[in-house]
């Protein structure tokens, strides 16, 4: 019987939002400031682990119905396909390009294919980290 950790649960609800926001910021900032796919992914994974710690597994799985193994696989595939996409235009494998576009709300914005690659990295990291931690914690020794 699990004790009813009201304080932990409440704090977690708040903290998770902050952690996810921070990790998204780290991810986006990666192009110009410290951060990037790897660290962003790891902090996201940390937020998910925090959820697992304060709530029971069934509830998380109900509200966040994600298969993290598939997530990791999808991440690796995204990284590979962004590399392949360049080849369609006759570039080398993993040749990245970038450009500046005028998008209605954001104004002058830089869009780079490297970010797509970073998405792959982030997904792979999140998926792997959560897979490892949940499989160890669910293990009955």
């Amino acid at each position: 019987m699990k004790p009813n950790d009201v304080i932990l649960n409440t704090v977690t609800k708040l903290a998770a939002v902050i952690i996810f926001t921070f990790s998204i910021d780290l991810f986006w900032a990666g192009h110009h400031f410290p951060g990037g796919g790897f660290i962003g992914g790891l902090t996201t994974a940390a937020g998910i682990v925090l959820l697992y710690l304060s709530f029971d597994i069934e509830r998380i799985e109900k509200n966040l119905p994600i298969d993290y193994k598939k997530m990791a696989a999808i991440g690796v595939l995204i990284a590979i396909f962004t590399g392949l996409a360049g080849m369609i235009y006759g570039d080398n494998f993993l040749e990245q390009t970038f450009g500046y576009f005028n998008i209605p709300i954001f104004g002058e914005t830089e869009l780079a294919t490297a970010v797509l690659f970073d998405v792959g990295v982030a997904l792979a990291v999140i998926g792997t980290a959560v897979t490892i931690i949940t499989s160890i914690s669910e293990d009955e020794l």
Binding site: G30, H31, F33, G36, L94, F98, A114
Partner: peptide, 18 residues
């Protein structure tokens, strides 16, 4: 070259993305 001010990240995802 890569449109990134973060050199480390540019190396990781662009120059040495492989």
């Amino acid at each position: 070259l890569a449109g990134a001010k973060n050199i480390v990240n540019a190396i990781l995802v662009d120059f040495r993305g492989f």
